[in-house]
Simulated scan of single mutants.
Amino acid sequence: MAVFAVTTAKGPGWESVRGIREQPEWDQHAKFSDGLVDRGVIVLGGPIGSTNDEDVALLAVEAADKDELRSIFAEDPWALNEVLRIKEVRPWTWWLDGR
């Protein structure tokens, strides 16, 4: 499996007056994400600080390739309802892992 750095960004369905845990379908998105952690797809992840207001999170993701990764995340309730979108997928070679 390859590792990818995945950044996510707010989609057109993001409600700017609400916090991240107050977005529509938060519970379903959280359950979906927890399932990906349980399956070993998401290795690490969470909200990330940025100078760009659209940025939401950074994830370390294991998948066979970018196509598989995108197909997995296409099933996220937030992706289906355009609350969140994948902004960038970059191959990530880990040389150090202190976990």
Rank of each mutant, 00 (worst) to 15 (best):
A2T: 08
A5R: 08
V6Y: 01
V6M: 14
T7P: 09
T7F: 11
T8I: 13
A9V: 07
A9S: 15
K10N: 05
K10R: 12
K10L: 08
K10T: 06
G11L: 04
G11E: 09
G13A: 08
E15P: 05
E15M: 12
E15S: 00
R18L: 15
R18H: 15
R18Q: 15
R18I: 07
G19R: 09
G19I: 02
G19E: 14
I20L: 15
I20Q: 02
R21T: 13
E22P: 03
E22V: 05
P24G: 08
E25I: 00
E25H: 14
E25W: 03
E25C: 06
D27F: 04
D27E: 15
Q28I: 00
Q28R: 05
H29F: 09
F32H: 06
F32Y: 12
F32E: 04
F32W: 07
F32G: 05
S33I: 01
D34Q: 15
G35E: 12
L36M: 15
L36H: 10
V37H: 09
D38W: 07
R39L: 11
R39N: 14
R39T: 03
G40E: 12
G40W: 12
G40N: 13
V41H: 11
V41W: 12
I42L: 10
I42Q: 00
I42V: 15
V43Q: 10
V43M: 11
L44N: 06
G45R: 02
G46L: 10
P47M: 05
I48V: 02
I48M: 04
I48G: 01
T51I: 08
T51C: 02
T51S: 09
T51D: 14
T51H: 07
T51Q: 07
T51L: 06
E54I: 10
E54H: 07
E54Y: 03
D55R: 10
V56S: 04
A57T: 09
A57C: 15
A57E: 11
L59T: 03
A60L: 15
E62D: 06
A63F: 13
A64I: 13
D67H: 13
E68H: 09
L69C: 08
R70P: 05
S71I: 08
S71V: 10
S71P: 09
I72L: 11
F73Y: 14
F73L: 03
A74P: 05
A74I: 03
E75C: 07
E75W: 03
W78R: 00
W78Q: 05
W78S: 00
N81R: 12
N81A: 03
E82P: 06
V83N: 05
L84P: 02
L84A: 04
I86V: 13
K87Q: 07
E88S: 11
V89N: 07
V89F: 04
R90F: 00
W92S: 03
W92T: 02
T93N: 06
T93V: 04
T93C: 05
T93I: 06
W94V: 00
W95N: 07
W95M: 04
L96E: 00
L96S: 06
L96P: 00
L96H: 02
D97R: 11
D97K: 02
D97I: 03
D97L: 01
